[in-house]
Design a protein around this nucleic acid. Structure first.
Lengths: 338, 338
DNA sequence: TAGCGAACTTGACAAGAGTCAGGCACTTCT
DNA sequence: AGAAGTGCCTGACTCTTGTCAAGTTCGCTA
């Protein structure tokens, strides 16, 4: 199961190996267009097809990663907003996309997050993936410039039953298939009915191994949820509305990987905590690279809380949100409410 | 110092002055165009400038590396020609660009070679650079997606006096400045007037250190010269026409980094050999990655010789040349002519 | 082997992008 | 202070590119 021939560029025909001859014209077209800067007309003449065909070839070339357009996150980090935000919250980097209508925001943040993650991935990485609409958007968009070897994607919190369209398993499986990674799913519900049951379950060898994997992640991708009406955590079916209300009463303003935090980013200890299965907030902070993707006016307080708690090393957001975050007053250190 | 009187209340003041602010708009424009796929018109409206300005921003963004368009060499390696050529000559990879008029060939090969080299460079690399028109074209085009750290560019053969437009020093200095590398030039002529002088010179501590550096290169970039009238080696002033004729009489068909080889790639031992300063063919073959950039009908025999001698691990050429190389009969192992 | 569907290609049209000369604002030189 | 210069922006023009419905080819099934 190992390659015997040394030294050969080995790109393996996975799935459906196209006739090499066909792949050729796409590569040629891409090369002539993007490297040699010929017009589509000139290429069409050269390859003896209609120009419209060249348009198709070029689209194919882009889809298949024969050409990839890379936006340098370092250049983005040089912008005023990004630098200010990174300084304010002690981030290693902030990727800030231009604001636009809120309806496309999740997809656009997903694209940006995917670009950032793709830059940061190295062969052998273990990538923790949380869940949520934004995390799913990242998974759906990500493409690696060159397939990195030996990647693993790990689900870092239990699954909830009620949200098939942005469930944890969906996020991990889409992500892993797109980047060619091994996928490790956490075979447990996000919240169990009793503390005893949770502890029994975590004692299972399968779960033990999965948690070992979770603790070895070197990158983690997550979103931030607010706790208002219609929020993701309420839609997810992870907990009942009443249980969530309980946390809100205790001061929770945000949810990070299923855990509730207050305005200063401190964990809110509530009734569910001992029954939750998933990475703890302390373990989260031990992951070297922690990419948080979130934006939108409704989430400003929540994102502020997550950043203040130091849960992220990298933030992906949009300009309006970034400006709002900078406009917020600094966190006043105060005692947790009793 | 700033604008005197704001004669109007400007919401979203677009004072276009500060460098940081200016860089911002270029980044925003690039992001909106390449990631969000807005049209230039939409971006122009959003940023409140004329569309023509967006065109300028986008060009700037490309020039500054805020966006970079990457052509995956692996996809190219999947093409039939490339695989056949790699198999035939035992190469690790062959990058084959579409053929076109010969006059632009050198520049286009340079571009392709630069893309390949950029993919292969890793932080800390020591890159040997030969000389010639093609090598210069590579140097002039190369851009690193992200500046790699601690690079060194080394001149691997002595300088010749007569060719200012593609001299060894020019190649190394352009290359090193473009990739942000330290530049080590070989402070010696390519050919000395006597063997004794050469040996004395090589004994100099300065030269000793430079040769140590040459022996530690892990990548080397070179072209292939033919020996006909008007060839690079004849134009370079490295040796007299008579001296070169001498080598041709001995069976030389090609020049690789200043060394003459026969049709099977074996070194042609001639009168100049003991007076040349530069990497030896045996040392060349010890470099792990050896990128040969060459193409054109006049060079087919020469390239065939270089490849047969095993001097390259990677070849960058064009389709016509590649086809011609494949059409050539296999090297018949024969004794060197006496 | 005729019929059917999927995948690919094509031509014509609409929309988008690149070019360039001229204008404006700010800087530098004398 | 005025002249000359520089850099950036703009509008109008032309060429280039994307779209789409209609055609074509090929392979598969009945």
């Amino acid at each position: 199961m190992r390659e015997s021939v040394p030294d050969q560029i080995d790109l393996e025909s996975r799935d459906h190996a196209l006739p090499a001859e066909f792949e050729d014209v796409v590569v040629w077209a891409a090369w002539l267009y993007y490297a040699d800067q010929l017009t589509q007309n000139e290429i069409a003449k050269k390859l003896n097809v209609a120009r419209a065909t060249i348009v198709n070839y070029l689209r194919l070339a882009r889809e298949r990663g024969i050409v990839s357009i890379r936006l340098n996150p370092e250049a983005n980090a040089r912008t005023r907003l990004s630098r200010d935000l990174a300084a304010r919250y002690g981030l290693s980097g902030a990727l800030i996309i231009p604001s636009d209508a809120e309806d496309r925001l999740v997809a656009r943040l997903g694209d940006a997050g995917a670009r950032l993650l793709a830059e940061l991935i190295r062969p052998g990485d273990v990538i923790g993936v949380a869940w949520g609409r934004t995390v799913l958007a990242v998974a759906e968009t990500i493409t690696l410039a060159e397939p990195a070897a030996q990647l693993t994607v790990v689900q870092v919190s239990g699954s909830s039953t009620g949200s098939p369209d942005f469930s944890a398993e969906l996020c991990t499986s889409i992500m892993s298939s797109r980047i060619g990674a091994r996928c490790v799913n956490l075979l447990a519900p996000a919240v169990l009915s009793s503390r005893e049951l949770k502890e029994q379950l975590l004692a299972e060898p399968v779960l033990q191994r999965q948690f070992e994997m979770i603790h070895s992640t070197n990158q983690i991708l997550f979103g931030v949820g607010d706790v208002g009406a219609g929020s993701t955590v309420r839609a997810s079916g992870m907990a009942t509305q009443a249980e969530i209300d309980g946390y809100v009463t205790l001061g929770s303003v945000a949810v990070v990987i299923g855990r509730f935090i207050d305005a200063a980013g401190r964990p809110t200890r509530g009734e569910l905590d001992d029954r939750m299965v998933g990475i703890s907030l302390d373990d989260l902070r031990r992951v070297p690279i922690r990419i948080c993707v979130a934006g939108g006016i409704g989430k400003i307080i929540a994102i502020h809380a997550a950043l203040s708690g130091g849960y992220a090393t990298h933030l992906v957001t949009d300009t309006s949100t970034a400006e709002a975050l900078l406009a917020l007053p600094a966190v006043v250190p105060k005692e947790p409410r009793l």
